[in-house]
Design a protein around this nucleic acid. Structure first.
Lengths: 184, 184
DNA sequence: CGATGTTTTGATTGTACTCAAGAGAAGTGG
DNA sequence: CCACTTCTCTTGAGTACAATCAAAACATCG
């Protein structure tokens, strides 16, 4: 965080979280990254990274040096295109996160979060209905602007409603449709 | 909103708000813009504008066409630099907004908001301690993720504490230091 | 095994939302 | 100029929700 922009990073394996530490010590999780995601596009604008990436498990990350990305000969047009695409997706997710934060009920936020995770696992070729979350309840809470207790309670409620099955970080979605249409 | 990117816009006079309308009809005010601010940098990434700008009073806005900004000859380096600078500032403000949204108490959020407005008026050469807000309580609420009633109550509380003087949209900051250090 | 971190659950509290009503400001047309 | 409408703003009362404090079960790791 605050470091000079040195390039982009592509996640090849594992999961990470992006964290912004504010001056008052408060830490906010801004995003979770899986295989195929691009990290570091937050450093493109003014040449400094805004957030810090923390591995949630064993990771493998590939670095794309800045000079390759911004080479003056136009041999790297595809890289540049990818960069724009990545930062565009970042904006989309940020906006979506803000929307979710406004959605009143904590259970709905958590339901949407589980759904989003499910879709990302599916996109990686894994099961959409059974997966193990790589992050803690505290991380989820920070990401959704909730306390870890509230997140835990939301998981329990969704479990009791028979929508999902929860065993610590192992999640099984019992009724995908109910989860999708869940509005409290 | 959703329109093809056609360039950037510089505010020459007046005040505007940027609004994102979500699919469920919910409107969220993402920023307020004054003289000197740049609008439209949200459309750079994927070629479509994400939000809509609404004038809060009589405005004068200058358009910088896209082809001038992205001209292949490097005669427009200063424009390009301004573009990056503007989008960088956008990110900064967005991050700051997220932080403020996490600050628990509504009165603190409103206090910070008043302070930010004061600084922006000062930057425009106007008085930092006496100004008229161009936006409604509802707009402020949307921006700070509060209801208009809560915003109104926060103004009243800060008034009763003798920190500011409020008469509808006319604000007078009585004790700048107290406002700056206000933490509830 | 002890130590540390994570998760769950309970009880209580506080804050902001909701609903509601009225006052004030601003603009429209007779 | 004055009703009339339409916004905006304020204030009150009650409620709902998530935060907080607290404790115990569970997991992970050296």
């Amino acid at each position: 965080m605050g470091q000079l922009f040195g390039g982009l990073y592509v996640v090849r394996l594992g999961a990470l979280k992006s964290v912004i530490t504010h001056t008052d010590g408060y830490e906010h999780v801004t995003s979770f990254s899986n295989r195929g995601d691009v990290l570091g596009s937050d450093g493109v604008c003014d040449g400094h990274y805004w957030c810090e990436a923390v591995a949630l498990n064993d990771c493998e990350v590939i670095r794309l040096p800045a000079d390759i990305i911004f080479s003056s000969d136009r041999s790297s047009d595809d890289v540049e295109r990818m960069l724009y695409w990545a930062s565009s997706r970042e904006v989309t997710r940020e906006q979506a996160a803000i929307t979710v934060m406004h959605t009143a009920k904590s259970e709905v936020r958590v339901a949407r979060f589980i759904l989003a995770q499910s879709e990302r696992f599916a996109a990686m070729g894994c099961s959409a209905s059974r997966f193990t979350l790589p992050m803690t309840r505290r991380d989820i809470g920070s990401y959704l602007s909730l306390t870890l207790e509230t997140v835990s309670r939301a998981f329990s409620t969704l479990h009791q409603l028979g929508i999902i099955h929860v065993s610590s970080r192992d999640i099984t979605i019992c009724s995908m449709d109910t989860l999708r249409t869940y509005e409290g």
